[in-house]
């Protein structure tokens, strides 16, 4: 299992340093820095227009940063484009492939650009369970199949870094689960770095080891999923007389939610509170640590804007 503490001993495979993109007088991406290590799945979250796609396009050399630089496996994307791109497979936004060609022709097309052979095409096709439909035109594929072909294409040439924009798009729940397991598998057993953006927070929570949150072009937070959530832990108390209980616990700044009280405390603080409440004759039905979801954390961090 992945251990976040081992990070310090690893070298990052994807480094973004002070990435900035200014178009006209608008700063679309503002001083974004992060590192992605070998063997981890890194989530990139942000609402619509936050600069997510612009950042991804800069990572893969489609957009020139105004300032800052990107290193992939130690190669600068600006100055050593070919070496850097040899280490990357990607899907940017939608998995657009040549619809008028078959899946196999598409894979062969991109394999030729890498100098990869037929065995590599067979390998990536079986990896995403597409071997059976490879000789049909991509125009006849469903969105889920195109997404899988996109991932297969990204896996050509065994890149060390995988950059996937919304990989769960268009997939049914079983497909999402399949992709999630594939990505975790690639990171864990092959030591690949997987960079995914998504608007499905629950999905990011299940798939990723670490997350960066971008909002209005700036990185708000970066950290392990566990740390980001547990740093916001609270205690939930269901009691008989909510207003009185709130009065007794006023020192702990409780918030009232229905017939529950939420206190910004760890569960270790619970026993004395329960004792105080029972002493005052208030019934305590339930005491539970309230685990904040990534979604709540996200909404708090971005000031309540919807995720997309």
């Amino acid at each position: 299992m992945y251990n976040p503490r081992s990070l310090s001993t690893l070298t990052p495979t994807l480094i973004a340093q002070h990435l900035t993109k200014v178009i006209g007088d608008r700063t679309i991406v503002d001083d974004v820095s992060f590192e992605v290590f070998a063997g981890e799945v890194f989530g990139f979250l942000g609402p619509n227009g936050a600069g997510k796609t612009t950042t991804i396009r800069m990572l893969v050399g489609l957009i020139r940063p105004t300032a800052g630089r990107i290193l992939i496996c130690g190669h600068d994307v600006q100055h050593q484009f070919e070496q850097a791109m040899r280490c990357v497979g990607c899907i940017v936004e939608t998995p657009d492939l040549y619809r008028f060609m078959t899946g196999r022709e598409n894979l062969a097309h991109f394999a030729r650009m890498l100098g990869a052979g037929d065995d590599d095409i067979a390998r990536v096709a079986s990896l995403v369970n597409l071997s059976g439909r490879l000789d049909q035109r991509v125009g006849t594929y469903s969105l889920g199949m195109r997404q899988r072909l996109g991932i297969a294409q990204a896996m050509l040439g065994e890149p060390r870094v995988l950059i996937l924009d919304e990989p769960a798009n268009g997939l049914d729940p079983a497909g999402i689960r399949e992709i999630r397991e594939l990505l975790r598998e690639l990171a864990r057993t092959r030591g690949m770095s997987v960079f995914v953006s998504s608007h499905l927070l629950a999905e990011i929570e299940l798939t990723c080891d670490r997350v960066a949150i971008i909002h209005r072009g700036r990185l708000l937070r970066t950290g392990t999923v566990r740390d980001l959530i547990s740093s916001r832990r609270s205690l939930e108390l269901r009691v008989g007389d909510v207003p009185r209980a709130a009065g007794i616990l006023a020192d702990h700044q409780p918030t009232i939610e229905g017939d529950c009280l939420l206190l910004p405390l760890d569960e270790s603080a619970a026993p004395p509170l329960i004792a105080a409440l029972t002493e005052a004759g208030i019934d305590v039905y339930r005491v539970a640590p309230h685990r904040q979801t990534l979604e709540e954390m996200f909404i708090e961090a971005t000031g309540g804007e919807t995720v997309d």
Binding site: G61, L62, Q83, M85, R86, C90, D96, M113
Partner: peptide
């Protein structure tokens, strides 16, 4: 127009 430039231009070819 078909969006394939995103793939074509992110391969290790100048």
């Amino acid at each position: 127009a078909e969006g394939t430039d995103k793939l074509l231009l992110t391969r290790p070819v100048r």
